[in-house]
Design a protein around this nucleic acid. Structure first.
Length: 260
DNA sequence: ATGGTCGATCCTCGA
């Protein structure tokens, strides 16, 4: 089972590339982030023509997440289930069960600047994700795969220059500890499990020629519960997809699971 | 690879 996470930075702008990439990479479950569209505008027909059904949670201008699957799409739920009355105003997480695997497609808040309200929102959001997983999944016994644009680089190997970035968002201790709490629940960063090396990224800023200078971050992550992580047999960041005409600023991250 | 923000919106903001 091939599961992919890809922040497409507008599905309207990217649909032709997404369609072509599906043809080449043949994912079973494709989780998208930053679709930047309403549910009404989501191009279900384009995916149906390729043999996929899709669930989308969007608001229009910003954010927006989707799960596109050819192996079933059940128990779809958007947002968090904690019943908090300050419910998230943004469309940032979508859940579905696909062929027995509980899947979450996440677009974690960027944070903007440390000491910004958005940074506190980011930490709170990651806490809610942790609590939702703790309350509603059994990662010790069940296959659960939580993917997306986490907007956090898990450690210094995941950024081009830790010294230059010190103290800025994506690398602060509280953000990394928030990911650490997911790991403590039993979730494994399947890319890092497989590759020790730094310099392997999933996002490169459009500005300043960051991609060709190899100045990126690994912030698009695939977290798998122990039963799923044990079944991983292939992991790849498809950095070729960052090249060419009208790329997203993120590359797709692929993990293959030897699951039925 | 022969270059050097982009996307959505409304001309600026978010990433």
């Amino acid at each position: 089972m091939r599961i992919v996470t890809w922040n497409v930075n507008s599905l309207n702008a990217r649909i032709d590339r997404v369609e072509a990439w599906i043809g080449a990479a043949s994912p079973d479950i494709l989780c998208l982030q930053e679709t930047k569209m309403t549910d009404e505008a989501f191009p279900h027909d384009r995916f149906a023509a390729l043999g996929y059904e899709a669930a989308h949670f969007g608001e229009g201008r910003w954010n927006g997440v989707a799960i596109v699957s050819r192996v079933g799409l059940d128990e779809v739920r958007s947002g968090f289930a904690d019943g908090r009355d300050d419910s998230d105003p943004d469309a940032r997480v979508l859940w579905a069960t696909c062929s027995g695997v509980r899947v979450a497609s996440c677009y974690v808040p960027n944070g903007r600047e440390v000491d910004h309200d958005h940074y506190r929102y980011k930490l709170d959001w990651l806490g809610r994700l942790h609590d939702d997983l703790a309350a509603n999944t059994q990662p010790d016994s069940d296959p659960v795969v939580v993917v997306g644009d986490f907007n956090v680089a898990p450690d210094d190997r995941d950024v081009w220059d830790p010294k230059e970035l010190e103290g800025s968002t994506h690398v602060t201790e509280p953000e990394r500890q928030a990911l650490g709490r997911l790991v403590a629940l039993g979730f494994v960063d399947v890319f890092r499990e497989r590759f020790d090396s730094g310099g392997l990224y999933s996002w490169w800023d459009y500005r300043g020629g960051a991609f060709y200078k190899r100045m990126g971050m690994r912030i698009d992550l695939i977290y798998a519960s122990a039963p799923a992580a044990a079944a991983v047999d292939f992991v790849l960041v498809d950095r070729n997809e960052r090249k060419g005409e009208k790329p997203s600023d993120h590359a797709p991250v692929i993990a293959d699971f030897a699951l039925a």
